[in-house]
Design a protein around this nucleic acid. Structure first.
Lengths: 193, 193
DNA sequence: TAAAAGCCTTGACAAAAATCAATGCGTCTC
DNA sequence: GAGACGCATTGATTTTTGTCAAGGCTTTTA
């Protein structure tokens, strides 16, 4: 249990067996069926969530009820409404399961206590945030500076599994495009080689 | 000296006078004239940089040499090519001064040593990354889900000083728009009330 | 296994944004 | 004080993207 969680943790900061057992006390497993919500807009995000198995999406709804996907999470990725989690304020994100999921949850009190008690947890979380921020900076730079074809290619290069596994209209939403436009971008790419 | 740096630091983690003196050893002041580079694409980002005074912009250049601004920094903000800094790899960002600047620099060795020696520095940096990541997530959600008018309004609400202080074509670049389009967005906003 | 639902693609058209060009205005510089 | 430069605006036009509608294919479900 919690294999993926500790694998990811140990990639960043190596824990001893005892430390690992100690951290385990703070974790909660959770299963989610496809289409079930992990978090709904307006609720407070009570947990950060690491994906042991399955896939989820995070999205905002605009006035007209359109869904705009802001993030995906596959095995080993962490997801949640970070702002809502840190500040314990109502969430602006919705998060639901794209497939049946096995998750590891960490509550806000558990997070705060681990930050206090285990310096390695703070290191882990510092690196997690730094990596996440760097990845999002890269995405932002691509969004602003690359033409659509390049943006799509960059995405498939960076996350080939994601693009295989998730319906294309969701990739389109994530890129801020209509499904039709992404379909045309893809046909332009394949026809030009 | 370093007033703004320690003000920002103490907002996140309170340092004693002794701790503050200790951290000071690792800092370097630097002045930059308007239009001078802090960092050029291809170089390794040797320092993180906090702005004591002045303003800078970070941007990528695409194949056709167009500038796409990815970030600004005003007083109290931290800037740098984080990926290049952390991994000590060639930078993809260019950073230059929009005004004459007074900066505080922190080198990579200094950063690493402070992480080791001063737990409060790790806490500071963890919070810095978390806040930066949350802000960028917000920006990304806006980019994908809000119509142009709303996006511009959100930007002026969030960073009124920035919009005042920086030429509008740079704001347009930051938003991923042509200067003409931003000008029209603005005239639509003012004419409709 | 038949019907329904979800997904992707394509075409025709409408809307939005980029581009090109011209103008005006202020500021800096010599 | 004149010219050059940078900046914002506006108009005309082109290009890009979104929207609407239809069709075919696959998967899910009853």
């Amino acid at each position: 249990m919690y294999e993926v969680f500790f694998q990811k943790f140990n990639e960043k900061v190596q824990l001893t067996a005892e430390e690992q057992d100690f951290v385990k006390q703070y974790l909660t497993p959770k299963k989610l069926r496809k289409k079930q919500y992990l978090l709904q807009e307006g609720d407070i995000c009570k947990h950060l969530c690491l994906v042991e198995k399955g896939a989820l999406k995070a999205y905002v709804l605009n006035e007209t009820g359109e869904e705009h996907i802001t993030a995906f999470a596959l095995e080993g990725w962490t997801i949640g409404d970070l702002s809502s989690f840190i500040k314990q304020e109502p969430a602006t994100l919705n998060i639901d399961a794209l497939e049946d999921c096995e998750l590891v949850l960490l509550s806000k009190p558990a997070h705060d206590e681990l930050l206090q008690k285990i310096p390695k947890y703070e290191t882990y979380f510092r690196i997690l945030m730094t990596d996440a921020y760097m990845a999002l900076q890269k995405r932002t730079a691509y969004m602003i500076s690359l033409p659509l074809e390049e943006r799509y290619k960059a995405l498939t290069d960076m996350y080939p599994t994601l693009v295989q596994r998730v319906p294309q209209h969701m990739i389109a939403s994530y890129m801020g495009l209509s499904p039709e436009t992404l379909s045309r971008v893809r046909s332009r790419i394949t026809n030009r080689k």
